[in-house]
Each structure stands twice: as structure tokens, then as C-alpha cells.
């Protein structure tokens, strides 16, 4: 870990101002990812702005009938919230499928969205990685890339986004609220938060410098069943090999792309009357392999119809 300076923010406005004014500053919330990355010399911020104690941990009902989840609400808190469990079970399922109990107790809603890839070549600083060291190359491309992306990868980066929670939020059509250093608040669909790697995999979101996620807003509870299914090598505390969130007619995939992957082609096919198997094969037409990750295409093609069937069965039962 390299030396850094630290301040504890007292309010969101001063936090974003400090972030914009201080070179190489980062927000610190739960610290479950950033601190690890700093210890491994993958991240080396000069300054940390601790936003973990800002009063943004509440989960409140919106006038529209949805829920506003404060960015500092911990993963455990959100997953256990009675309203979330009753009306957005896919979100609880996704959250508890991620990390471990200890991690979820510390990890925050905003931080979860901004966690970085678990690609082994990103983590090993002796390897080239365009995400960690832009321009150095990609060690995973010709390497042990079993866990790499099948959608939207580039020749510069084949890493995946590791969040489970974000996959459920994507299927739910959640909105992200932010505060910019200018003092401007904005809100946008979660699908517009993350970027595909392209030539600049080190730039992972569309947030501007110093912009702070303040909340995630869920729309009113959607119709239809909700299911989150995650395929993984062990039963807990393991990244997904692939995952799917089904929310009524919405589908999102996890661990298959540089961002939570809204399966819009499959959704369109379903809407047009295709079977779940046909629909996901439509989506997978855009999928590509990188040596060792081809099995993910098989997993997705089998997992998604099973999850849709489960969600539909629920929807009928409700």
C-alpha cells in the first residue's frame, strides 16, 4: 500500500467538491474492494474521501410507489429490508448470492455498483492489463480466461463486472441518482452507468470526475415473477460463472460482460412470442468466446430458460 491522505466527509456537497479539487482522489465507503486493491498496489489513490458516514443509508418509499435506497445502505441492510423482500425478492436473492456475510455487512449500495473486476490478470500486477495499466496489453486474452466476458468484450479487455446486485437492479430497471461537483443532481437508468471496455477499459462508468452516487431508485414493484439464479463453482463466496435476473418480462445477465447485461434481444424475442430457449439463443448470437470461456454460452443458454420458467411459475402462483 502506498501512503495516502484521508478525510471524512461531513456532507455530500463538500465530498464531491473535495473529490473534484484533489488530484487522484477516491471515495471510500465500505472499503471491501478499494482497500484490498490498495493493499495489492492495484489502486493507489493519493487521497481518500470517506463518505461511509454520510446520512445516505435510508431506504424510503417514493411517491411513485417504489423505493429509494440510499447509496450508503449496506448490502445486508437492503437484502433484509421487509419491503425489498416482499416486493423485490430478486434484489434480495442477488445480494445474498454475492460476497460473504462479513462483506455484505460492510459493502454499500453505491460501492457495490462501482466494484472492480475480479479478473486474475487485473489482480496480478506482474501481468499486463489495460484496465490497471492502460496500454500495457491484456494478459487474459491468451491466458487462463475461463471467467471472461462473452458479450461486448474488446481486444483491449475481456473482463467482467462482478456485481450480483447490479444484475438484479438492471432487470428491475432501477435509476441511479448522483451529485456532481458542480452541485447538480441527476438521475439516469442503471443501464447507462457502466461502459463496455472498448479501447479504454480503465474507464468503467459514465460518471464524471468527483460525481458521487447518492441513491438507487426502484420503480414500483413490477408484474410477474422474480428470480435470480447464479451459477458458481462453490455454494457461497464465489464469483458467478454466469447469472440471470428475471423480472417479469425483463432479463439481465451477470458475469458475462464488462457491465450488467440487459438481454434486450431476448426480451424482444420473448415479447414477439419466442420460447425462452429461442429468445436466449437470439441473445447469444452476439456472444463470442475467448478460448476457455465458451462454456458460459452453454450455461446461459440452459440457465435462462430454467429461470424464466421458474419466474413464470411464480407469477402464476401469485
Amino acid at each position: 500500500m502506498r501512503p495516502f491522505t484521508y478525510e471524512r466527509a461531513t456532507d455530500a456537497a463538500s465530498a464531491v467538491k473535495a473529490a473534484a479539487e484533489t488530484p487522484n482522489a477516491k471515495f471510500l465507503a465500505g472499503g471491501t474492494n478499494l482497500l484490498d486493491l490498495m493493499k495489492l498496489e492495484i489502486e493507489h489513490p493519493a487521497h481518500l474521501i470517506d463518505v461511509g458516514r454520510l446520512p445516505m443509508a435510508a431506504i424510503e418509499e417514493t411517491p411513485e410507489g417504489g423505493l429509494r435506497i440510499g447509496a450508503m445502505a449496506t448490502n445486508s441492510h437492503v437484502a433484509a429490508d421487509a419491503r425489498v423482500r416482499a416486493h423485490y425478492p430478486v434484489l434480495t436473492q442477488a445480494i445474498v448470492a454475492g460476497g460473504s456475510g462479513q462483506l455484505r455487512n460492510k459493502a454499500t449500495t453505491g460501492g457495490n455498483l462501482l466494484q472492480r473486476t475480479r479478473c486474475a490478470y487485473f489482480y496480478d500486477t506482474t501481468k499486463p492489463c489495460n484496465k490497471r495499466a492502460p496500454g500495457s496489453g491484456c494478459g487474459a486474452l491468451e491466458g487462463l480466461n475461463r471467467n471472461s466476458a462473452i458479450f461486448g468484450a474488446s481486444h483491449a479487455c475481456i473482463a467482467t463486472h462482478p456485481s450480483d446486485m447490479a444484475v438484479a437492479l438492471t432487470a428491475l430497471g432501477a435509476t441511479v441518482e448522483t451529485l456532481s461537483p458542480s452541485g447538480r443532481a441527476r438521475a439516469f437508468p442503471i443501464i447507462e452507468l457502466h461502459r463496455l471496455p472498448g479501447e479504454t477499459p480503465d474507464v468503467e462508468t459514465h460518471l464524471i470526475a468527483g460525481e458521487l452516487i447518492t441513491a438507487v431508485v426502484l420503480p414500483p414493484p413490477p408484474d410477474g415473477g422474480q428470480v435470480y439464479r447464479k451459477v458458481r463453482d462453490r455454494a457461497s463466496y464465489a464469483g458467478g460463472l454466469a447469472s440471470v435476473a428475471v423480472v417479469g418480462a425483463n432479463l439481465a445477465l451477470g458475469a458475462v460482460a464488462h457491465k450488467p447485461w440487459r438481454a434486450v434481444d431476448a426480451e424482444a424475442a420473448l415479447k414477439a412470442g419466442a420460447s425462452p430457449a429461442e429468445a436466449i439463443s437470439r441473445e447469444l448470437e452476439a456472444a463470442s468466446e475467448n478460448g476457455r470461456n465458451g462454456f458460459k454460452i452453454d450455461v446461459v443458454s440452459r440457465l435462462v430458460p430454467a429461470a424464466i420458467a421458474e419466474a413464470r411459475a411464480q407469477g402464476r402462483g401469485a
Binding site: R118, A120, Y123, G139, L144
Partner: peptide, 16 residues
């Protein structure tokens, strides 16, 4: 790793 001779899993989150 066939190119680097290193082990892919280097922590207890990846070595399962």
C-alpha cells in the same frame, strides 16, 4: 498460466 508460469489463483477468494 502457460505464458508466465505463474499460478492463476493468488488469494482465498479465487482459490476455492
Amino acid at each position: 498460466d502457460p505464458h508466465y508460469g505463474s499460478l492463476i489463483n493468488q488469494d482465498l477468494a479465487s482459490y476455492l
